[in-house]
Design a protein around this nucleic acid. Structure first.
Lengths: 340, 340
DNA sequence: CTTGGCACTCGACCGAGCGGAGTGCCAGGC
DNA sequence: GCCTGGCACTCCGCTCGGTCGAGTGCCAAG
């Protein structure tokens, strides 16, 4: 048996199906790709491929369509990444370089990715738990409320208002701010919790209840997971490629809106060392609303360390080579910007 | 001629069409609503209503469907708001009362509104231009960058990093912070721009360039409109009621994603004094992607003053009475929370 | 292992025909 | 002057049968 040719056939089927949206038959296959054999031979190969679960036919006497498993092989072994045009590269580069902020960077990134791939783009904010504290700012707002601003080394700014003891004086706040920063600066955020526990001890006994009201509120807000955030763009692209979702796009939209689902999905993915990206195809995303969707992601960060992920979500029938290239390229550009 | 009955007919048509999704004919009309006359009579009324542009038929010998103009009359004159159930009220109330933050309040609000109406919900952040400054915080980040945090009286927190002269010392920053707050606190944000112009004058001549590098950056970031923000929820509802958008939902999704469009739309609307809400039907939203959509909004704020708007977006064929009730109720609850 | 031939299957498309819902109009009644 | 029953008409939606074509699986021969 000729395994090589069979894989070529699979590749040809995927490519044709992706570009035409139609089940592909043995005849057009030999016409479009010069396989050097007759349709009958191809048919035998296709029968085997179908047995092995790489392709399927929608109905008897229709052409073949790749299965999730077929796409998987295609992505892993059969495709070569299609690099971006220099115009595209330049566009990304200048767009991102104009950003003023982390917020701004991620905003621009997600838009670029959506436009580039014509799919839904998603960019995760740098993970808080893996960040270190750069600065903590306390701003009393009066009437027992205080604003806490947390700035991480990655430039992420989280803010939260907390309820504190109204008797808190500016002096105590000032001292607390100084001590908090001295103790927390440069430390990973994960240790700040236990740090807060011991902090009141160093204050004068009469101030401790006040201090505790602040540290308590802080601990609370660290505990409640507002932890991970993300930005989305390009949902309209879903509707445009609507025919690619057999049933309807609404389960996909629901999954997207349920940000927790997406965030978990992103966190679960790890980059393939070779390609630098990670691909989840159809049912591999365990969420059932995403059974007809694929997710292509890549980590980004500074200095080789991954601090968050970004990627796109689209129909399983997507152009993997160009999508993968786009995701990888964008991830690199963002990393460069973040590092600089 | 019997104008009253004709309006009843219009109302009946709207109600039936909204609940059945099907063009409604003279026969079912007299069956379902007891109009006390024969189908033939209704037909005459319908002919007149059609001449006047309130209803239309998709094809000859189909039933009638309300036009935008028909819905307009229905909303203005023919419908009575359908109040929320007490269970719903209680749900909103408790959900909102658990919020810790302005961010949190708006997040919860938009979710509640989406769930309540099964449509796309949108909540505008309190307008910056109509807010006054409560506090400005300057946090030097080192290496020529500084974080500016702006807190308004409505609890909105905007942050932005700006590039400044690296030679800036903590002393100058401290003085600037104090003077800035002294000058800006309690003043409307709209005057802060001109205030920044004159601020450097009061500093020692040798510090003025440094100060200018800060105020310049601040003016820049005030000028660039990141001004208005909003939160969205319930886009998946669009897909579920997909059949109500004759062509496709993708233009609607695009309009939503183009947040500027929505924000302008919201700003352009003003509440009807009687009902407390504002309704835009179909082509009344000038954006052409929203030709088959209606928008129902209401202002919210504290102490009777409107500081922003919230509302929902759905198909023109929507249940106006309950939608209007929901929007109004939610706006009231948010206002109460914000005021408290 | 490949190939041409062949019978078979089944969806897509077309056109005809039918039924039904709904209309507009008209003539008669209150 | 308005309402009503009756009636002819229109046109959509549906079904049915038939055809066409693409594509398959299998087989026997090279």
């Amino acid at each position: 048996m000729n395994t090589d040719r069979r894989l070529s056939v699979l590749r040809a089927i995927v490519e044709d199906y992706v570009s035409t949206r139609e089940p592909v038959g043995s005849k057009v296959l030999v016409e479009r790709h010069n396989l050097g054999v007759s349709p009958a031979t191809i048919r035998n190969d296709m029968a085997v491929l179908e047995d092995e679960g790489y392709i399927a036919q929608p109905h008897t006497s229709a052409g073949r369509v790749p299965t999730d498993k077929g796409y998987r092989i295609f992505v892993d072994k059969l495709s070569t990444v299609k690099p971006l045009s220099t115009a595209e590269r330049r566009a990304i580069s200048t767009l991102l370089s104009e950003a003023v902020d982390l917020d701004d960077v991620l905003e621009r990134t997600v838009r670029a990715l959506a436009r580039l791939t014509n799919q839904v783009a998603v960019v995760q904010y740098p993970s808080l738990s893996r960040s270190t504290v750069r600065h903590v700012e306390l701003v009393p707002l009066g009437s027992g409320r205080m604003l806490v601003v947390l700035i991480t080394d990655t430039g992420r700014v989280e803010q939260r208002t907390v309820d504190v003891d109204p008797a808190l004086t500016d002096d105590v706040v000032g001292e607390l701010r100084a001590r908090l920063n001295a103790a927390a600066s440069g430390r990973p955020l994960s240790v700040v919790g236990s740090l807060l526990e011991t902090l009141p001890e160093v204050f004068r006994p009469e101030d401790r209840p006040l201090v505790r009201s602040v540290t308590g509120a802080l601990e609370d807000s660290l505990a409640t997971e507002r932890e991970d955030r993300m930005v989305l763009a390009g949902t309209a692209n879903l509707a445009r490629s609507g025919t690619d979702f057999p049933s309807s796009i609404s389960p996909v939209l629901e999954a997207i809106e349920e940000q927790v689902v997406l965030l978990r999905l992103l966190s679960d993915m790890a980059d393939d060392p070779a390609s630098g990206v990670s691909v989840r195809i159809g049912h591999e995303n365990l969420h059932e609303g995403l059974a007809d969707a694929s997710v292509v992601t890549s980590g980004y960060g500074s200095g080789g360390e991954v601090i968050a992920r970004l990627g796109v979500l689209g129909p399983t029938r997507m152009d993997y080579p160009t999508t993968i290239a786009a995701v990888r390229a964008v991830a690199r550009y963002v990393s460069r910007i973040i590092s600089g």
